[in-house]
Computed example of a mutant assay.
Amino acid sequence: MTSAYPVRLEELIPRVRTLAEESGEKPSIRSVAGTFNVGAKKARAALVALGYIGSSEHGATSERRLQSVPAVADVVVNAREVHDDVAEEVAEPHVTTVVDAPMSPSKSAGRVGSPRARSQVRRWPIVLIALGAFVSIWGGWVELGKLTGFGEITPLPGIADGWTINSAITLPLGMEAYAALALQVWLSGRTRSDKARSFAKWSALGALVLGAGGQVAYHLMKAAGMAVAPWQITTVVSCLPVVVLGFGAALVHLMTDNPEEVRS
């Protein structure tokens, strides 16, 4: 596969160090470049920063066993010294082709991420489930909103007095949309922020529990023939749009955090 976004030197150095510890040998420029999909210049810079080769050494490294691993402080200092040498390469995307080793048919068939594994995932059942849940959840939230005081409003008074909407639709739109967003942030791994993933996890679970509670409350009141919800339920439901807005804004801010910048 190919990558248009090379690994940064600061990220490459600890990976090379881990590779050396696992193999018990000093890696060569070629092995680092092939393993981590980087250019030879950046691979050499990482090895120089770790002290595995000298700054003037261009060939393959020796095959002798590792005697010691450089301290973290020394790695940081060396990385800063060679940073200028690879600044130009880091700024410009480098494309390197990595050829995977041949795999047996039995292993490649079950390999995660392989075309065959991806083809086994069928999304149409999820669409059917989502359609059924949408009808039930939407109707339940809108009817619960009516029992708690939500109803027809004029969103633009003085501008479009003839245009009205049912404010109860804000309940399913806000609650279910946020639950889906939080689940995606939690399970997809698209953010490197541990705080964002933790917040998304617990808020998604809370949103699902709260949504289920809202459905239960509506059906119980409907079965009892109630025309107006108790004040406790009305209080909670009326606060949901504000709570969802706050949680959504907080999650977006956490997703944009860069843990590396915070540590630096």
Rank of each mutant, 00 (worst) to 15 (best):
I153Q: 12
A160P: 00
P105R: 00
N166D: 14
S104I: 05
A71L: 13
G158Y: 03
V72Y: 09
W141A: 01
R122N: 15
D161T: 00
A71D: 13
G139Q: 14
N166R: 09
I129A: 13
G132S: 07
V99N: 07
V77T: 15
W138E: 12
A130I: 09
T164S: 10
L144A: 02
V112P: 03
V98T: 15
R111C: 08
G145R: 00
D100P: 04
V69E: 01
I159K: 15
L131P: 05
N78V: 05
E88I: 08
R80G: 12
V135A: 12
T96L: 09
V95S: 14
G158S: 07
P157N: 05
P105M: 00
W163F: 12
V112Y: 12
L156A: 12
S119T: 01
P115S: 09
R123D: 10
H83E: 15
G145H: 01
A168V: 00
S119A: 13
V77S: 08
V72C: 10
D84N: 12
Q120V: 02
V142K: 01
V72P: 04
T97E: 12
D84G: 10
G162A: 10
E92Q: 15
V75H: 00
H94Y: 15
V135C: 08
R111H: 13
G151R: 09
S167W: 00
A160N: 10
E81W: 03
G110I: 11
V142E: 02
S167M: 04
S104A: 12
V82I: 15
S167V: 07
T170M: 09
